[in-house]
């Protein structure tokens, strides 16, 4: 009886960690996001390159002891229509085989963006997390500022439109946009406003620039990084230090080196393992 209870507790913990992983995936992807109208002068030269392949490891950390949960891959490639070429930004999350028996994750996020403007044209999400499946497809229409969304959840299909104004990015494209910012011109404490489309809804997120920091980036050794604090609401923004951080390597590519999100028990980390 006690063993069953312990096992149930463990399963609950696993589910909690995995659900946090989802949040981190959002943060990951967020942590890097888009920007406000004032940023044109601060925009860095484009960092998107065809064939870029980044690998990250998502881990749960408790009292300094970690367990790796999933591998996240971010791949950039070009796709062509009859006359045009666009970037396909793909982000996948796959749980390690040791977790597959308990909670298998196979998430696919895609963004099709224009090469010159980095504007998302089609955004797709197809997730499978422990049997929970959801598909979301959003098509951006810039002439009438409407996004056509299609959501398939539990086999049910739902379609709806979202009206938007100003700059808007989806999860994956916002990652790449944040990397185009010239942080050397930023002052510490600068807040970057972010509008991101998630599951057909627009979310406002703020990223606060906290300066540079040297951190260990696995096999690449110590790297100077730009540190950002991510907040999803005003309350978090007012805090001196947030609980979600991202470090971008301070070079021309601005590759995310580490993402950390604190949760009630421990923290979830996503660290760069290969680039």
């Amino acid at each position: 009886m006690v063993k069953i209870e312990i096992f149930e507790l463990i399963l609950k913990l696993i589910i909690k960690v995995i659900s946090m992983l989802k949040i981190v995936l959002v943060i990951i992807i967020f942590s890097l996001f888009s920007f406000s109208a004032k940023e044109s002068a601060e925009t860095f030269k484009p960092v998107i390159t065809d064939g870029e392949n980044l690998t990250f490891v998502a881990s749960y950390n408790m009292s300094g002891l970690m367990t790796d949960i999933a591998e996240i891959q971010s791949v950039t490639s070009k796709v062509s229509t009859k006359t045009k070429t666009l970037y396909r930004l793909k982000c996948t999350a796959s749980s390690y085989s040791k977790w597959d028996t308990y909670f298998k994750i196979r998430d696919l996020y895609e963004s099709y963006i224009t090469i010159d403007t980095y504007k998302p044209v089609i955004s797709k999400k197809n997730i499978d997390e422990g049997g929970y499946k959801k598909e979301v497809s959003s098509t951006f229409n810039y002439s009438n500022k409407i996004i056509k969304n299609k959501v398939i959840k539990h086999g049910k299909e739902d379609s709806f439109d979202t009206v938007f104004q100003g700059s808007l990015y989806d999860l994956v494209s916002s990652v790449y946009h944040i990397r185009t910012l010239d942080y050397d011109k930023f002052t510490v404490g600068k807040v970057i406003a972010i509008s991101v489309l998630i599951d057909g809804k627009i979310h406002k997120i703020n990223a606060k620039y906290l300066g540079t920091e040297n951190i260990s980036v696995g096999k690449y050794g110590n790297k100077k990084c730009y540190k950002l604090s991510i907040s999803v609401n005003e309350k978090e923004l007012k805090k001196a230090a947030g609980s979600k951080f991202i470090w971008l390597i301070a070079d021309s590519k601005r590759v995310p080196a580490l993402i950390k999100a604190e949760i009630p028990i421990g923290s979830v980390q996503v660290r760069l393992s290969n680039m």
Binding site: T81, K84, Y142
Partner: peptide
Amino acid sequence: LEESGLLDEIDSLDVVE
């Protein structure tokens, strides 16, 4: 989208609005 002309409209957008 290309056939309906929507991709051409995106090309005419500024990098940052």
